[in-house]
Design a protein around this nucleic acid. Structure first.
Lengths: 344, 344
DNA sequence: GGCGCTTCCGTAAACGATTTCGGAACACTC
DNA sequence: GAGTGTTCCGAAATCGTTTACGGAAGCGCC
């Protein structure tokens, strides 16, 4: 099967009619349409995407940019695969496909995205690992390409985004710890420019403030979001002049290293130091004591991302009328024993 | 910047010359080429991919099909992100880009691939989660699309593939265990139709055979490749009439559940039952005792995949002359204490 | 029978690039 | 000065679709 030409010849009708029939245009006899559809199915004809794209200026594909070097790359579950799944299910309802664009660690994300945009491979984009100041947002705005960011940004503008509920996480974590008598609560955030850490830190400050606890910069530990980072964080915490009695870890993977360093010091999480971490993974329950952490549905997040992206595209405005979405994704607290540490 | 037309008008030359200049054709004056290149850079002109594709029948993109429901989706590190990174670095050397095609859990992989192939979105493909009998291989062969499989298959034909060294893993694991006096070595494999489990099981049988140990079907435990699966596997093992004294787990994530069930029974891995698992993750060293497992470089695997794929494409035959590659990827043994269990 | 309306379909022009073909300009040789 | 190359570039065809436009056919109505 070559192209629409052959299909039309086979049926002895013009290619215009074939195209109209396949695309569900109203101005084609239903009998004719049926014949075309049948012949297309039989011959396995599928329109050449390049031809379509060239003519319509649209690709019927949505891009999802991820970065191999992003922190969650080391996280204890395949965060993105779960999200992809949700996005796909939404898109397939509209005959759209998802193509993932992985930016290599050695390439600048903005440059990479610029190239991809120029390629006109996709009609719209989901970007992740959003930076505090993210040039990609300006780039996409200027190029007038619909997009949604997984993760809010401080970059000005009114683009749609969905972010995890770091405020909720920080407040609930701090509330719990304070309720157990803790006053010196440390926090671990990554030391990169991804906005997540900043949002988390702000929420942590606010949470402390609600309890009248002054913010101490010394209790903010900046390390890599890895097991090693967690180990290092525990080390820093142990060598403080006046150690914290509790800690909130932003990446659950860090908990492994954190536990390890504590164990080396003869200390036990949940007894000597309270630990709460964000985000649940298979190993949370296995740790001893089990880690108190926060859970979410990756697939549902993907669905929300897909729907909210479509909502920002004029072509789908009537299907998803919610418009520009700014949404915070709820997290569920999972109680382990790791935050049971006694106070003082 | 609109298209090549504008660029040509700006320079007062024809679009043909512009195209030739940009594509490095010899029949264009070097002075002219320089002017074109400069103007293109200044105006940020990038050729429209649809136009190119339509004319040349090529897309300059390589696809990597992954499945959200694949076992490793739950694995304790982002297996695929690491591999993507390696593939990207190879492709970018040839001005190719990687697009990842994630198949949703609720869609048939072959149907999905058929759609993607028809889209002509990519020039060549990497497929993963290779099945024992994989229709995708036949599909791609018939469509004459260059591809490489991550994971060998029993599907006839001579397509290129790279697979992890399951033989090496199985032999080294069994050798170690037997050397420590074990005779009853159980093995855990997934219960799906992905070829990995079959290859692993065959190698396990062969390894036992080399030591004159008869194969016992009762020692093959088929469970899901998840933490729960590991838990269940341990349970099955404990309730055997004549329990195994050692076990080889194919997914490291299973070790968490396996350890947990053992602990519940008052047993300790490495003391009461020897455990070796495939593949290392951040938590391997953290488990108590640390897990004896196998390590690999995801990025290097990706590089090999990319190079081997290009080697199978006529257009790159002179750059990568190795031709059709069948390659087994080596794994490095990481010693933990989990396989130290005494025998008898 | 003329007119208007609807229904359906064919023709041809885009879309933006690459590439074949031929020719202009120039130099060189005899 | 005619013939022969060589170098470089422009014109135009081409890839496979979609879609604007117009027209043919059929029908109903006065």
């Amino acid at each position: 099967m070559k192209g629409i030409r052959q299909l039309a010849d086979q049926l002895n009708i013009s290619i215009g009619t074939v195209s109209r029939a396949l695309n569900g245009r109203p101005d084609v006899n239903e009998e004719t349409r049926k014949r075309v559809l049948e012949a297309a199915a039989e011959l396995g004809y599928v329109p050449n995407q390049s031809g379509r794209s060239l003519r319509q200026g649209t690709t019927n594909a949505i891009g999802f940019m991820v970065e191999s070097g992003f922190d969650t790359a080391g996280n204890p579950d395949n965060f993105f695969l779960g999200v992809f799944d949700g996005v796909q299910t939404v898109l397939s309802r509209h005959h759209l496909d998802l193509v993932v664009l992985p930016c290599a660690t050695d390439e600048d994300p903005t440059q990479y995205l610029r190239r991809m945009v120029a390629r006109r491979l996709v009609d719209a984009l989901i970007i992740s690992a959003t930076r505090r100041k993210d040039e990609r947002i300006e780039l996409l705005n200027k190029a007038r390409i619909p997009f949604i960011a997984l993760g809010r940004s401080a970059t000005p503008g009114d683009h749609p985004w969905i972010d995890l509920d770091f405020e909720g996480v920080a407040h609930r974590a701090v509330d719990r710890l304070v309720a157990r008598g803790h006053r010196r609560v440390a926090v671990c955030v990554p030391s990169n420019d991804i906005n997540l850490g900043f949002v988390f830190l702000d929420a942590y400050r606010a949470a402390l403030g609600r309890h009248g606890i002054p913010f101490e910069p010394g209790l903010v530990i900046r390390v890599a979001s890895s097991e090693q980072g967690g180990y290092q964080a525990a080390h820093e915490l142990l060598t403080m002049a006046e150690p914290a009695t509790a800690v909130v870890l932003i990446y659950e993977l860090m908990a492994i290293g954190f536990y390890r360093r504590l164990n080396e010091a003869g200390l036990s999480p949940g007894r000597d130091i309270a630990v709460i971490a964000f985000r649940e993974s298979p190993l949370s329950r296995f740790l001893s004591p089990p880690l108190t952490c926060f859970r979410m549905s990756l697939r549902d997040l993907g669905i929300a991302l897909g729907e909210s992206l479509l909502a920002s595209m004029p072509a789908y405005a009537e299907v998803y009328p919610q418009g520009i979405v700014h949404r915070v994704w709820p997290m569920e607290l999972i109680e382990g024993g790791s935050d049971q540490a006694i106070s003082g």
